[in-house]
Design a binder for these strands. Structure first.
Length: 511
RNA sequence: GGUCCGUUCGUCUAGGGGUUAGGAUGCCACUCUUUCACAGUGGAGACACGGGUUCAAUUCCCGUACGGACUACCA
């Protein structure tokens, strides 16, 4: 029985787009479901687009999400190296094999020559220029040139590429796990460059050779690869590897939240939402982006959200732990159409994750933010604080914004709230309540509520009026958690102190 | 332009020859509440269009429209 081996193969050209994370996730889920192997392979065959730090970024992103590769650069594995730039010789020997058996040929046409030809054809009305069977016998390649001429050029060190010799008049069939059979007429396929003039392979060659050598069983990748999959199948045939050719699954795109087209990094900046897993610091502000992590997302929520963007188990369950995703996942349930990136839904997922998280865990995550404000509450206090406020936040940093007055030593009172709700007639009642509170030995919300309400009734005033004033005294404004819950959290001393200070403040602002 | 892919509420989607076309999110209303939230209840909201096949089509087939990807010595 063959165990499943899948790979996530990004190219280190910058920050890893959230769509890439979803691709990685689906690969990971399939691997884990069948106790297979999840491989990270770095596709760095384009020297021009190489961006320093991108590989590290990709690895850090995957690890933050919890998608740890079983094999890959820095992760071990017996099929390395896992960076394509370190596999030159492998591609070289394989390309030689292809040339030997007539499936590939040397092409000496330069980029400039090809550009010029393309332009000329275009001017003549042919916008469809392809380097293919129809034209290859007119070009400078080893198919047309004499063997002596070819040998001379090679010996001279003339720059060359190696191209795939696409067979004529065949139908190539791709069995896609998501889309069913897809057919390509070879007449429509061009003679793709397999080896570039710099000696490095193109994606097309490298991905077939590596997938074969790394014993990949399933290729799960973005839809943008579907049009070139015909070439890939041809390549497997050229190498005689059809029997072990991996299964293909081409994922639908993730679309912009608004408008048309696929989600791009620009959309993130434009709409003020993250589209990358973690922040990326580029050379310029325009090339720098906030990540889901820095935005305050829980990685589990991100994965959960991403998993349901294009896939669905067919049940009505929406909240999944990673283990549940592994259990429920199947390629057959992946949809065909593109999915719009819905940030509101992502927010909702994060809210659900925050609600489900133990208070102590929330406190642990919140602590750095609180400490940055120069505060250092006890573990117990911060956990209770989180429990009191987590209902009303979507993101971790909001946990501070929404209740900071409970952590800070003093409350800043909203003057509008005070002038609107304070009435000097309430002063005696406020005083009484403060007095009563200062005499309590236990300080739990329920008992306090009963006691204070009784006291209010005795005074013959409206409960709402005084409660609102108590709220202002404790929170500084007209919103927040329950009054008595805040009292319990703050404890007797702080509560009494806040009420006393407030009374003083009210009296002064009234005069 | 060519090749390939796609199209169910605003969004994510379930479903699939006969359903009141289901859920979630967002929106609105109500309830709860001392406030803001949470929660609960309810509401508006979809099968792109045109032809076939069929007793019956949103579901199958073919077109059209619309959208997208690809069309590099980038991945």
């Amino acid at each position: 029985m063959n165990t499943i081996r899948v790979r996530f193969a990004p190219s280190p050209t910058g920050a890893l787009h959230i769509g890439g994370v979803r691709t990685a996730l689906y690969n990971y889920l399939l691997a884990k479901k069948f106790h297979g192997t999840f491989i990270l392979r770095i596709e760095d065959t384009d020297q021009n687009r190489f961006v320093p730090g991108a590989e590290e970024y990709i690895v850090e992103s995957l690890l933050w999400c919890g998608l740890k590769p079983d094999e890959g650069p820095g992760f071990g594995g017996e099929y390395g190296p896992y960076r394509q730039s370190e596999r030159r010789e492998i591609y070289q020997t394989h390309i030689e094999e292809l040339i030997r058996n007539g499936h590939a040929y040397y092409a000496f046409d330069t980029t400039e020559e090809l550009d010029a030809l393309r332009e000329k054809e275009s001017a003549a009305g042919n916008h469809n220029f392809k380097y293919d069977a129809g034209i290859r016998m007119k070009m400078r390649n080893s198919l047309r040139l004499s063997q002596g001429e070819v040998e001379r050029l090679l010996a001279e060190g003339a720059p060359y590429t190696v191209r795939l010799k696409v067979p004529e008049n065949q139908v190539v069939t791709v069995h896609d796990l998501i889309r069913g059979e897809v057919h390509f007429q070879t007449q429509e396929l061009d003679d793709k460059v397999l080896l570039k003039a710099d000696g490095l392979p193109t994606y097309h060659l490298a991905n077939i050779v590596d997938d074969h050598l790394m014993r990949i069983t399933h290729v799960i990748r973005g839809e943008e690869w579907l049009p070139s999959t015909g070439h890939h199948v041809l390549l497997y045939q050229a190498f005689g590897w059809e029997d072990t050719m991996p299964a293909f699954a081409h994922l639908p795109l993730i679309l912009k939240p608004d408008g048309k087209g696929k989600l791009s990094k620009r959309d993130g900046a434009r709409l003020g939402i993250p589209v990358f897993p973690i922040s990326w610091a580029g050379d310029t502000p325009e090339d720098s982006f906030v990540g889901f992590r820095e935005f305050g997302f829980d990685p589990g929520a991100v994965l959960n959200f991403l998993a349901l963007l294009g896939w669905n188990p067919g049940t009505e369950q929406e909240l999944f732990s990673i283990d549940e995703l592994v259990e429920a996942f199947s390629i057959e349930k992946i949809g065909k159409g593109g999915s719009r990136f819905d940030f509101d839904k992502a927010k909702w997922f994060n809210h659900q994750y925050i609600l489900a998280m133990p208070n102590a865990e929330l406190a642990r995550l919140l602590r750095p933010l609180v400490q940055a404000k120069g505060l250092d509450p006890s573990e117990k206090f911060l956990a209770a604080y989180c429990g009191l406020l987590k209902d009303r936040v979507h993101f971790l940093p909001e946990l501070w914004e929404v209740g900071h007055y409970l952590l800070e030593p003093e409350v800043e009172m909203n003057p509008d709230a005070v002038s609107k709700k304070w009435n000097p007639d309430l002063a005696p009642a406020l005083k009484n309540v403060t007095e009563w509170l200062s005499q309590q030995t236990s300080f739990d919300a329920e008992a306090l509520e009963a006691g204070v309400k009784e006291l209010i009734n005795e005074q013959g005033i409206k409960p709402g009026a005084l409660l609102t004033v108590l709220r202002i005294a404790l929170a500084g404004d007209l919103k927040g958690p329950g009054v008595f819950e805040m009292m319990e959290l703050l404890g007797k001393d702080a509560t009494v102190q806040r009420l006393a200070r407030a009374l003083h403040h009210f009296n002064n602002s009234a005069s």
